[in-house]
Design a protein around this nucleic acid. Structure first.
Length: 248
DNA sequence: GTGGCATGGACAT
DNA sequence: TGTCCCTGCCACA
């Protein structure tokens, strides 16, 4: 569920409910020490790739990565008691409960910088450089379909976006990233920026502005465009979907 | 009701 | 490569 577009959407939602508030921070499950955070003013909620960052005014930041199974639950006030296993509860103008994240930790500003340093440009961040994004992808030794999932190359793209973006760009996922032209990669970056922005606003992967619920190739048996049987294979450790006719 | 898979990623091995 | 993360969804009994 949580590719970068949804993490950015969550950041926007939580900022509206929590930013500028003194937030009651607790860990009902007990696995996070929240003493340094409870009652502090939350200044900003932001996203970098699939990582969510809650920065507090005194210079501490909660870093959350949902992984495959994690989720946020939102409750308008008054919130019910937390269900079993809630790792983190943030209570401001509304209450958010965090369930089953891969990562939930408190970082200093230095820790945040180190995290950002490990992540490539994010198509949904205004401070990302297209030139750097193009250069990083073309510097990868991997097939473009594997490079796109490497969060140190570009951050925020997951398996569904990989499939749909490469179809939109008419690129074969198996093509070595280093063999792609600068123009091709620049176009791929612009597609990522434009469609992931639509996806963030719609709350789902959007690869056809006129048909937000449809996919071209991802998890399909046949290409939605030409009807060819989709080529399914493992690439970059995950299942890749591509149209063998249109993506050469 | 149950079991397998998955829109991640870190870590052990 | 396997395994964990207090999951959700779907197909199939």
């Amino acid at each position: 569920m949580p590719e970068g577009h949804l993490v950015h959407r969550t950041a926007r939602e939580q900022a509206a409910d929590l930013a500028g508030c003194r937030v009651h921070v607790s860990s009902p499950q007990g696995r996070l020490d929240t003493e340094a955070l409870d009652g502090r003013v939350l200044s900003e909620v932001s996203a970098h790739g699939k990582h969510l960052l809650h920065r507090f005014e005194h210079g501490r930041t909660v870093h959350v990565h949902l992984g495959m199974r994690g989720l946020w639950l939102r409750y308008p006030d008054p919130a019910p008691p937390p269900r079993k296993g809630v790792r983190l509860r943030l209570a401001g103008r509304a209450t958010y409960d965090l369930i089953a994240p891969t990562t939930c930790e408190v970082l200093t500003d230095r820790g945040v910088r180190e995290l950002s340093g490990r992540l490539g440009p994010d198509p949904l961040r205004a401070d990302s450089s297209a030139g750097e994004a193009v250069a990083r992808l073309r510097a990868s030794a991997a097939p473009v379909g594997a490079a796109l999932l490497d969060q140190s190359v570009w951050s925020g793209v997951g398996n569904a976006w990989r499939a749909e973006l490469l179809w939109l760009a008419r690129l074969d996922p198996r093509t070595p990233a280093a063999e792609l032209s600068e123009a091709d990669v620049h176009r791929l970056w612009e597609l990522a920026r434009d469609f992931m922005t639509m996806g963030r606003d719609a709350g789902q992967v959007v690869s056809d502005a006129a048909a937000g619920d449809e996919r071209w190739v991802y998890k399909r048996e046949r290409c939605r465009s030409c009807g060819a049987p989709i080529r399914v294979e493992q690439l970059g450790g995950r299942t890749s979907y591509a149209c063998p006719v249109e993506q050469r």
